[in-house]
Simulated scan of single mutants.
Amino acid sequence: MGKMLGGGVESVVMNYYRHVDRSKVQFDFLVDADSTRVPEEEIKALGGRVFRIPPYQHPLRYRRKLVKLFREEHWPIVHSHINALSVFPLSAAKKAGAPVRIAHSHSTMGKGEFAKNLMKLALRPFSNLYPTERFACSEYAGRWLFGKNADFTVIPNAIELEKFRFDPTVRQKTRKGLGVSDDTFLIGHVGRFMPQKNQAFLLDVLAELLPQKPDTMLAFVGDGPDRPDVQQHAQELGIDDHILFLGQRTDVNHLYQAFDAFCLPSRYEGLGKVAIEAQVAGCPCVLSDQVPHEADISRKTSFISLENKSSWISTVLNISSQTANRQIETSNTCAEKYDISASANRLTSLYVSSAESANGWEETL
């Protein structure tokens, strides 16, 4: 898992873990020792174990520990969720003789992270050397890491659809809990505070939008290293009284229903699971054009360049003028491929067939 810090990939993996057939497949988690949000109690309750290993920034100790663990535990499947960095654990898994080695692409790259992008570009040519199978959260993410003509399987960032379906009672209760009045236009964003998610852009949009729509609030859900800078920028713009910093939340499914619009100004995304969740909740979405169009399951999502701030403002204003007559669509067949129950059953079958074909099958993996 690399570093478990409360991000989107961790939530995807944990969601699958809760729903796979654990009589056939069991997960153990290898996490960097400096991880800050490891749900150890839940993992242990579900039958798994957590192994803390040296951070990958210490490559020699990291690799030695991995090879040692792979040899001791004899896991038939090693599934790496750390994108271009999967080169390191999967090379160790191959050295230790792990028969099934899965590289999983959850992301891509974009502007704003120079050093990180250099590392991704350096490692990407080696992404096909060590895996026996390739997974990706979207076609876009798979092609980016493995190549345009590579053979890979799309494993969607699936969710509990019913948990996110719109409920007017939940909306009213959640807005009341946030202290947001019925006539306030509430824009929402969910994401870790880091360069990729580009939250400061939304502050600039809000600052120019407020003179035209003064009854607007912006709610940030999440935490991360960039949060203090974003808070300071809000103060410098003089709009901090229009912003809610909600931190890490366990009721994100309810928050989507409180939002009148959802914005994701990411510099890059593998898919954008939060946009899927927002649409299932019936929330109009405005996304950067660096988010894959596979994230549009409502066929009503706007994708706008980050270079065109005025278009972001006009699109959000247009949404605000329609909220009074907003129709919530809860029967969306495009969302069905993101149903976690069906997706987890499929993943279980993929694990079992992979282990069997590699002669690594045991009664319980």
Rank of each mutant, 00 (worst) to 15 (best):
G2R: 11
G2P: 08
G2M: 09
S11T: 12
M14N: 09
R18M: 02
V20M: 03
S23V: 05
S23W: 07
K24I: 12
D28W: 04
D28K: 09
E40A: 15
F51R: 06
F51E: 04
P54N: 02
P55W: 02
Q57S: 15
Q57P: 06
R64F: 10
L69Q: 05
P76S: 11
H81I: 09
S86G: 15
S86M: 05
F88E: 01
F88W: 10
S91Y: 05
A93D: 08
A96Y: 03
V100M: 05
R101L: 01
H104Y: 00
H106T: 06
T108F: 00
E113V: 09
L118G: 11
N128I: 10
N128M: 12
A136G: 10
C137Y: 00
S138M: 01
A141L: 09
W144M: 07
L145F: 00
F146D: 00
F146L: 06
G147C: 00
K148G: 14
K148Y: 02
D151R: 14
F152R: 07
E160I: 11
E160H: 08
T169D: 15
V170K: 13
V170A: 10
K173E: 15
G179R: 07
M194R: 12
N198F: 05
N198G: 06
A200D: 14
E208Y: 05
L210D: 00
P211N: 05
Q212N: 13
P214A: 10
P214N: 03
M217Q: 15
L218Q: 12
L218V: 08
F220G: 06
F220R: 06
D223Q: 12
G224K: 08
G224E: 03
D226T: 07
H233E: 13
E236N: 13
L237I: 10
L237H: 08
H242D: 01
L244R: 13
L244A: 04
N253H: 15
Q257A: 06
R267D: 09
A275I: 03
C285E: 01
V291Q: 07
I297Q: 12
T301L: 05
E307A: 15
E307K: 13
S310P: 04
S311T: 13
W312N: 05
T315M: 11
L317V: 08
L317T: 07
N318H: 14
N318P: 05
S331R: 14
T333D: 14
T333R: 12
A342M: 12
A344T: 03
A344S: 04
A344C: 03
N345H: 13
T348I: 01
Y351L: 11
V352T: 14
V352C: 10
E356D: 11
E356C: 08
L365D: 07
